[in-house]
Computed example of a mutant assay.
Amino acid sequence: MAIFVEGVRKRYGDKPALAGLDLEVKPGTVHAVLGPNGAGKTTAVRVMSTLLRHDEGVVRVAGHDVRTEAPAVRARIGLLGQHAALDEDLSGRQNLEMFGRLHHLGARRAGLRADALLDRFGLADTGRKPVKQYSGGMRRRLDLAASLITEPEVLFLDEPTTGLDPRGRTEVWSAVRSLVGGGTTVLLTTQYLEEADQLADRITLIDAGRVAAEGTADELKARVGADRIVVVLRDAARLGQAAALLPDPAVDPDTLTLSFPVADRMAGLSLTLRALEGADIEALDLAVRRPTLDEVFLHLTDRKDATEVAA
């Protein structure tokens, strides 16, 4: 395992931040950690990246114990926090060179590594511009490049796209996919559920410092319920007739929508379409809707602030 966490506990005074956390991350994958505010996501990342000592439990990263072999762990990981750690007045290349020198690469090697990373993250054309002229997405890509200056085996991304617009998030997602394609293991914490859905091979949902659920996005969605056929009608007067043709649908008269669970997506669509056409009922929209990670999140976390994340 690239990351192995078992029975980890961490308290801040009388408050438990981690209450027996278990986690396993396979090499060369993206593993997302979701949870409401205060669930323990950032604390878990700080423990796994040796920035914080846990009270109980076992944590191994890249084959090394974070408590007894911290220097070996630090030599094998990269960390991208919630806020960019860049010098605004320096160019992108100068920032990367600086990080390289701080990691004792030497001037020539740091320069070569900076050029390679600028090219890898699509920043070669802007590498000599000061960072204060960069867009939000470009800054995060540069920050991501800086976290890879030593070619880490494991990369921790703690809410890497917070505050970015959709274009900026897409740019970072593309960069993360490229990293994993090159063999890097990524542990990602995020409050954007779409981000986990797009990127993660597996997802761990934590609440109150412990695991509430774990699996692929599809496995977690299946825990909430089956796929649903959703029909939107054109004519409000045909709503009752359409409801009589379908298997016990939920009816929303305000939106002229009917929906019902279905085991077989294609068969359900075909039967619904034939029933409506046979009664000459026109549908504006007919689709299969899967449960979303938002619904998974709200279903599995018993927290009032869960809606903040789902939003």
Rank of each mutant, 00 (worst) to 15 (best):
E6M: 11
E6V: 11
K10A: 01
D14S: 10
G20D: 09
D22H: 10
V25S: 02
V30P: 01
G38Q: 00
G38F: 04
T43C: 08
A44Y: 13
M48W: 01
L52R: 08
G57Q: 02
V59G: 00
I77M: 03
I77F: 13
G78P: 06
G81K: 14
H83E: 12
E88K: 09
F99L: 03
R101S: 09
L102T: 08
R108T: 09
R109D: 13
A114S: 00
L117R: 01
L118Q: 11
F121R: 07
F121Y: 07
G122T: 03
D125Y: 09
P130L: 08
V131T: 14
Y134R: 12
M138S: 03
M138N: 03
R141P: 12
A146W: 05
E153D: 10
F156R: 07
D158H: 06
P160V: 03
R167E: 14
R169M: 08
T170P: 14
E171F: 00
V172W: 05
V172M: 15
A175R: 05
G183C: 09
G183E: 02
E194C: 06
A196M: 11
L199E: 02
A217V: 10
L246S: 02
P247D: 04
P253K: 14
T255Q: 06
S259A: 08
F260G: 09
A263T: 14
R265H: 00
A267M: 04
G268V: 07
G268N: 02
S270C: 04
L273T: 10
R274E: 15
L276C: 05
L276F: 05
E277A: 08
D280T: 15
I281S: 00
L284A: 02
D285G: 04
T292P: 12
E295V: 15
K304V: 12
A311W: 03
